Amino acid sequence: MEIKQAEFTTSAVKPGQYPEDGRVEIAFVGRSNVGKSSLINTVTNRRKLVKVSQTPGKTRLINFFIINNQFYFVDLPGYGYAKVSKSEQAKWGGMMEQYLINRPQLKKVALLVDCRHKPTGDDVMMYEWIKHYGYQVIVVATKKDKLNKSELQRSAKVIKETLKLNPEDNLVFFSSLKKEGKEELLNEMFKDIEL
């Protein structure tokens, strides 16, 4: 899959604001500082498609981006950032759950984790949520450039064990800085998907 065109379409907080054209959607979710914006920009070949913030927790809406005029990338709010109030966190959780519960267009979810750290309780809960709602999940371990080869092997073991990955779940290591893992991630995203 080659991405030739990517544009911001709309932001939403409730189902009535989601696109209604029935196109396939692939969502991205992860902790607030995991590098989600950078990853989407790298995958779409657009440096500023998604605003990259120095302040974690900036994505507070569900953002839809039309790709190749064929399908959507959906950027979900980051979670697990301590400086956000509990009521705000609960609001985001409700918004994301609402999206995940009843979205037949959503075919896959990329769950981003930082390869330098053991997945958090929030990451485990998000993985279980995605599986509970019956979506295919791709676990993307970001910031690959920060680890050497043996550290990456250890990281893969820790991520698989902590999330209790199923054999059919894919783990892709990714570096936005070096653009490593991009082809593999795109291949995983579009495997078994009819556009």
Rank of each mutant, 00 (worst) to 15 (best):
E88K: 06
Q70L: 13
Q54F: 13
Y81W: 08
Y81M: 04
T59H: 02
N63A: 03
Q70D: 14
A82V: 12
V50E: 00
F71A: 05
V74L: 10
T59M: 01
E88I: 13
F64V: 06
S85G: 14
Y72S: 03
Y72T: 00
V74K: 14
E88F: 02
P56A: 00
Y72A: 07
L61F: 11
Q54M: 13
S53G: 12
N69Y: 09
Q89R: 15
Y79T: 07
F73T: 04
G78P: 10
K51E: 06
I67P: 02
G78H: 03
T59R: 04
K51I: 08
I67Y: 04
F64W: 08
L76M: 11
G57V: 12
F73A: 07
I67N: 04
N69A: 08
P77G: 04
T59L: 04
E88T: 14
K58T: 15
F64L: 07
S53P: 15
G57E: 10
V74R: 13
D75N: 02
Y81L: 03
V74N: 14
S53I: 14
S87K: 14
K83E: 10
F65V: 08
Y72P: 09
V84N: 07
F65L: 11
R60I: 00
I66E: 05
K58Y: 13
I67L: 06
S87W: 04
Y72H: 03
I66N: 02
G80A: 04
G80F: 04
Q54G: 12
G78I: 14
I62E: 12
F64P: 11
F73K: 08
A90S: 11
F65W: 07
N69G: 11
V50Q: 03
F64E: 09
F73W: 07
A90I: 08
L61E: 14
E88Q: 15
G57A: 06
V52A: 06
I66L: 15
L61A: 12
Q70T: 15
N69M: 03
S53H: 05
L49F: 12
L61R: 15
A82R: 11
L61V: 14
I67W: 01
P56C: 01
G57K: 04
L61H: 15
T55E: 11
G80T: 10
V74M: 13
P56W: 00
T55L: 05
V52D: 01
A82I: 09
A90K: 14
K58N: 09
T59C: 04
G78W: 03
Q54T: 15
K91V: 02
K83T: 07
Q89G: 08
E88R: 05
I67T: 01
Y79I: 04
Q54Y: 10
Y81H: 09
D75P: 04
